[in-house]
Structure formats: structure tokens, C-alpha cells
């Protein structure tokens, strides 16, 4: 484990949209990401889990540099790369690349695959045309596609092949950190498995670190070293995947895990199910964002948002209830 994380995010906040204008309707901004801190160590797979609209993708795009941060810091291998204008930010963060959720729509329909793949190399200063062609052919083979794919167009490929193309496109730029946005959504089970195996294989081969954005818990459990659970822009629980899945501590994590469909074992039941919808994200509530859906809410939860505190080494939770339970159990042990 290297001492300096390859990617570190410190108290990152992102505000989206918002418009106040003459003769125009005022639109309130959305605080999509709130004071998020993350460490990504070289070689590991960190999964970012949460329901739709919780800010996972925004966080990914902000780390990449497509979205500007409104506060906080991003460090790559210890260097600060935040606070830059969008194009400068992209240049400084070229070791980070992003794979879109919809791999097909991320390709220009008028450009052949070969031309699209070579374009990235051209942008990154590979002037020699035959070198570009060779590297594209080699990379297509590395992701398990035929070299003749270069002559074809995006609409001629299946969903699984498009994921492979998307990976080939960004891997050509020799990244070290990949942000994978729902890399398996919309694929059938057998194709999902091959894509996941390919991801693991590529990680070995190119020494990659993954930030894996997903809401598919079964995939997350199988693939990741560590997990961070997001709810309404905040990380509410993070820790080693095994531990979080075995001992979910935050009530939201518990409900999320309980709601996941399983082939074996218990069914999701009564009180642990999440009630209602997440609150309007433009509202700024003083307390815990999960308050009105939480099964174990207490009056203190409405006063200030809970901070992430360790419940076990490396396992952090942002919930007042978790600590009361813990102190209670410690107290009980002492008395005994």
C-alpha cells in the first residue's frame, strides 16, 4: 500500500445549474456533491454506490474535470489539480479517464471506429499515422475485438462490444485511473460477466486503479476492494467491501442491501424498506438528509448533518444512531 493515494478528494462540493436572470425564471442550484472526501490507492477498486440522482456521476465527472468543483480539493499523486479552468483541468488530469454509461452514444456515429480511436492519440500528440494504426490494432486485440473492427461504424456493434470499444478508446491514452460509470448496465448476465472479467484482466495488464460507479450491488460486492455509499451528495458510509456488506451500519446502507434482490436468503421485509422518495435536492436541510426516510431517526438528527466517524479501522459511518448503538454496546460490555 503506497503512502500517497493516487487520487485524493478533500471536502469536494459541486453545485449544479442555478440561474438567476433578468426576465428569466430563477432556478435554484442543486448541491449535487457535498463535502465528499475519498482516497483511492493505486491498484484498488473503489465502488461508489447509491440510488439514481445521488451525485455519483457528478462526482465522477468532477474528478475527471468535465464539471467544475465549487469547493474542495482534488489531488493526483499528491499534486493539487483542482481550481483550474475546464480545459486546463482536463490537461492536468489526463491520467484519469472516464467510461460513459452509454458506450454507444459516446461515439460519433459518422466516424469509423479506427478513426475515433486514433483521434485520442492524435489529440495526445502521436503524429505518426502508422504508429497510431498499430497501437489501435494492438489495443483492439487487448480488449478482445478483431483488428478489422477499425473499419466499421458504431451502429454495427453490440452492447458488449461497445463497452470494449469504450475501454479501448480510453486505454489508448495510457490512463492510470479509470472512472467506470455503470460499466455493466443494460447488458445481459453473460455479457456482464465477460465485461467484468475483462476489467479485472485489464487492471492487471495496465496497472489500473478503478473508481467504479454503480447501483448494482451484486457486481459491487464481487468486484470491489472498498465501497463508499452515497446519499444525496454525501458519503454516508465507507469501508472495505467485505465489512460493509457483512456489517452494514448506516440505516441507508442497510435498507439498500435489504432491498437488493437475491436468489437465496431472506427477502426484503417490513421496517427496513426505504419509505418515500429522496427529498427535493434544491432544498437545504440543516440535519441529516436521510432523516425523513430513516427508520431509526432521533431528534438530534434534525439539528446538524452527522460527520463520518470510524466504527472500525477503515470503516466510517455518518450516523448518530450508529455511535449510540456502539457506545451502548460498549457500556453493556463494561457493566457485564
Amino acid at each position: 500500500m503506497s503512502p500517497v493515494p493516487i487520487l485524493a478528494v478533500r471536502d469536494l462540493s459541486v453545485r449544479l445549474g442555478g440561474r438567476k436572470g433578468f426576465l428569466q425564471r430563477t432556478i435554484l442550484p442543486v448541491q449535487a456533491v457535498k463535502q465528499v472526501s475519498l482516497d483511492l490507492r493505486a491498484g484498488e477498486i473503489l465502488s461508489l454506490v447509491g440510488e439514481s440522482g445521488c451525485g455519483k456521476t457528478t462526482l465522477g465527472r468532477t474528478i475527471l474535470g468535465l464539471q467544475r468543483e465549487s469547493a474542495g480539493e482534488i489531488l493526483l499523486e499528491g499534486r493539487t489539480v483542482s481550481g483550474l479552468a475546464p480545459e486546463a483541468a482536463r490537461r492536468a488530469r489526463s491520467i484519469v479517464q472516464y467510461a460513459h454509461q452509454d458506450a454507444g452514444a459516446a461515439l460519433d456515429p459518422w466516424w469509423s471506429i479506427g478513426r475515433t480511436l486514433e483521434e485520442g492519440l492524435l489529440i495526445h500528440g502521436v503524429r505518426n499515422a502508422s504508429e497510431r494504426r498499430d497501437r489501435v490494432a494492438a489495443m483492439l486485440q487487448a480488449v478482445g475485438l478483431d483488428a478489422t473492427s477499425a473499419r466499421r461504424y458504431p451502429h454495427e456493434f453490440s452492447g458488449g462490444q461497445l463497452r470494449r470499444l469504450a475501454l479501448a478508446r480510453i486505454l489508448l491514452l495510457q490512463p492510470r485511473v479509470l472512472i467506470l460509470d455503470e460499466p455493466t448496465s443494460g447488458l445481459d448476465m453473460s455479457v456482464q460477466a465477460t465485461v467484468l472479467n475483462l476489467l479485472l484482466e485489464l487492471r492487471e495488464r495496465f496497472a489500473l486503479t478503478y473508481l467504479f460507479i454503480s447501483h448494482d450491488l451484486s457486481v459491487v460486492e464481487r468486484l470491489s476492494d472498498r465501497v463508499a455509499i452515497m446519499y444525496l451528495g454525501r458519503i454516508v458510509e465507507s469501508g472495505p467491501a467485505k465489512q460493509v456488506f457483512a456489517q452494514p451500519t448506516h440505516p441507508y446502507t442497510r435498507t439498500l442491501l435489504a432491498a437488493a434482490p437475491r436468489l437465496t436468503g431472506r427477502r426484503a421485509s417490513g421496517p427496513s424498506l426505504v419509505r418515500g422518495d429522496p427529498p427535493n435536492p434544491t432544498l437545504v436541510l440543516p440535519g441529516c438528509a436521510f432523516f425523513d426516510r430513516c427508520p431509526v431517526a432521533m431528534p438530534v438528527c434534525q439539528e446538524a448533518p452527522p460527520r463520518l466517524e470510524p466504527v472500525a479501522p477503515g470503516h466510517d459511518v455518518a450516523c448518530y444512531g450508529a455511535f449510540i448503538e456502539q457506545t451502548a454496546s460498549i457500556g453493556a460490555k463494561r457493566r457485564a
Binding site: 468535465l66 472516464y98 483521434e119 480510453i170
Partner: peptide
């Protein structure tokens, strides 16, 4: 606003490349 333009920004394409080589032909 389409995803492929977003992806191009992601891999570091400049504005003139995006506008003349991708948006205009489309």
C-alpha cells in the same frame, strides 16, 4: 449536449476539433 461530444471533451478534444470535425458533419 450529446454524449459523444461529452466523451470527446473527456479525452481532451479542443473546441475547434469538436465543432468542425464532429458537430458540423453531424
Amino acid at each position: 449536449a450529446s454524449l459523444f461530444v461529452d466523451a470527446l471533451r473527456g479525452i481532451g478534444a479542443g473546441t475547434s476539433r469538436i465543432v468542425f470535425l464532429h458537430i458540423l458533419p453531424n
